[in-house]
Simulated scan of single mutants.
Amino acid sequence: MQTQSQQTLYEQDLAAWFNDTIAKLKAKDFDAIDIDSLIEEIEGLAGRDRRELKNRLKVLLVHLLKRLYVDAPQDYRGWELTIQEQREQLSDLLEQSPSLRNHLIKTFPDIWQRSLSTVRAEYPSDQFPAEWQFSL
């Protein structure tokens, strides 16, 4: 059960609450842990990783579309560097949490459409494919 002081610490200083909770977990002092806040934080972490995956995937797709379909050689190097960085970050994220691959596959169609909308708005005179033409 959560005490008033645990709730106050959680609301006033999240870093201190983390340190306090870690110490209690290590000491196996489970009765003193603010379980509701711990659950909230773990749920937040899972959501954060899914949002990061979606954001990085969108940046990757936007820059791939630009590099493949926009004739702007002066911009190619910057786009290529962004593509490389996003691939590395996505790879690291999926290595750390392999189950996120399922989320990637599930959300890919939506992210593809958002990416396509972004580049079409930015480059209205260029032609982009309506469908993703490569494997995941």
Rank of each mutant, 00 (worst) to 15 (best):
R87S: 13
A121C: 11
D36K: 09
R67G: 13
A16C: 10
R101M: 09
L61M: 02
D49Y: 08
S125V: 14
E52M: 13
E88A: 14
Y123M: 03
R77M: 04
I39W: 11
I105F: 07
S5L: 13
V70T: 04
L25A: 13
D13Y: 02
D34N: 10
H103Q: 10
Q96E: 15
P124Q: 01
A32I: 00
R67I: 12
S117M: 06
S117H: 14
Q86V: 03
D92I: 13
E11K: 13
S135K: 06
E11W: 05
Q7F: 07
A23N: 07
L38H: 09
L94W: 03
E122Y: 10
L45E: 07
L60T: 01
Q7R: 15
A32W: 01
A16W: 04
L38E: 07
Q84A: 12
Q6K: 10
Q2F: 02
R114Y: 10
M1A: 11
S97N: 11
L65V: 05
L116W: 01
N55Y: 08
D20K: 00
E41T: 07
R77I: 07
K106H: 10
E85D: 15
S135C: 03
E131R: 05
F134R: 12
S5H: 15
I105A: 14
P129D: 07
T8W: 10
S117P: 03
K106I: 12
L136H: 02
P124R: 04
H63T: 01
V119C: 00
L90T: 01
Y10I: 03
E122H: 05
R50C: 08
P109R: 06
Q133C: 13
K28R: 15
E95M: 11
L116G: 00
Q127L: 15
A46T: 08
F30K: 10
P73M: 02
L93I: 02
K66Y: 00
K24L: 11
L61N: 00
D13G: 04
D20T: 05
K58Y: 03
D34P: 00
S5Y: 12
A16N: 03
K28W: 14
A16E: 08
P109Y: 05
L14V: 06
Q4S: 13
E131M: 06
E85K: 12
R120D: 08
E95Q: 11
D20E: 04
A27R: 05
E122I: 00
K106S: 13
K66N: 08
V70N: 05
A23F: 05
G47T: 06
Q127Y: 06
I22F: 02
